[in-house]
């Protein structure tokens, strides 16, 4: 029962990612795509240090290592 709840919750989450991305790609949508959100976050800098880029790259690197190397 709890296992099904967890699987269902994660599937709902993934489906919501897909639905919001689909909505963002419609003509005239006011929702930015996930890529645009990432690009906006990656613009953030502290002084000359691209903190946003480092943070997003670091997170994505860790995610790949987490699933594909361990």
């Amino acid at each position: 029962m709890m296992r099904a709840l967890a699987i269902g919750g994660f599937l709902v989450s993934l489906a919501l990612f897909a639905v919001v991305e689909w909505a963002a790609r419609r003509e005239g949508s006011r929702i930015p795509t996930l890529g645009e959100v990432c690009a906006y976050v990656m613009r953030y800098e502290v002084g000359s240090v691209p903190v946003g880029r480092i943070g997003v790259f670091g997170f994505w690197w860790w995610l790949g290592w987490h699933f594909l190397a361990r």
Binding site: G9, F10, P32
Partner: peptide
């Protein structure tokens, strides 16, 4: 890159929150 995000960006919190809650 966009200089600002439109208000619809808040919709992205929905899948993120659902995932974070279950994780």
């Amino acid at each position: 890159a966009p200089h600002r995000l439109e208000s619809g960006a808040v919709w992205w919190t929905l899948p993120v929150v659902v995932f974070v809650v279950f994780e």
